[in-house]
Amino acid sequence: MTIVLPMPPLLRWLRRVLTGADTPARSTVGPAGPPAINELYHSRRLSMVRLAVLMVDDLSTAEDIVQDVFTALYRKHGAELRTIADPNAYLVAGVTNAARSALRRRRTARAYVPPPPGTAPAAEDEAMLGAGDQEVLRAMRGLTGRQRQVLVLRYWSDLSEEEIADVMRVSRGTVKSTAHRALSVLRARLGER
């Protein structure tokens, strides 16, 4: 007869005994305060959700993206984030990549199923914006995902071309040409109206 041991709790207990420290999950409240990942989450979550909303234009998808990025950051670098040099850059890059994946999934899904009526921006959101802002945002919805991301990172996050190239993992020339094409498209669409 074989006895199946509860392996995860046993290993967790062994690790705690050998290291003499508590598990990361239980170290959320300690004498040194909350871990760095939770502080970063509370301080940067709103701005990351805003960045994701500007890229995917959907609040619930943006919240899911940001939650996944923070969870991945914690799983990869731990609670204290000692092994990462710039957590903010990691977050921006993670949100940008996840937003690109979400846009790709949405484009694939819309090739087979028409978008549901709830995916358009809420009416109160439209009403709170000025007419000029509504016009610009409507024109931005016609851009490709990469063009939209470059414009958001450049004109809302105020990143330089080199930083955008690092975040998007493309060359600086690609960033420059993509931004130029996106502005040309926007200029043409806004100039026609």
Partner: peptide, 22 residues
């Protein structure tokens, strides 16, 4: 201006409750 106005529509109150990563 348009991007800033759109981003400011997203406030802390509109976000759903989010659990910390830990």
């Amino acid at each position: 201006d348009a991007l800033t106005a759109r981003a400011e529509q997203i406030t802390q109150e509109r976000l759903r409750f989010g659990e910390p990563p830990t």
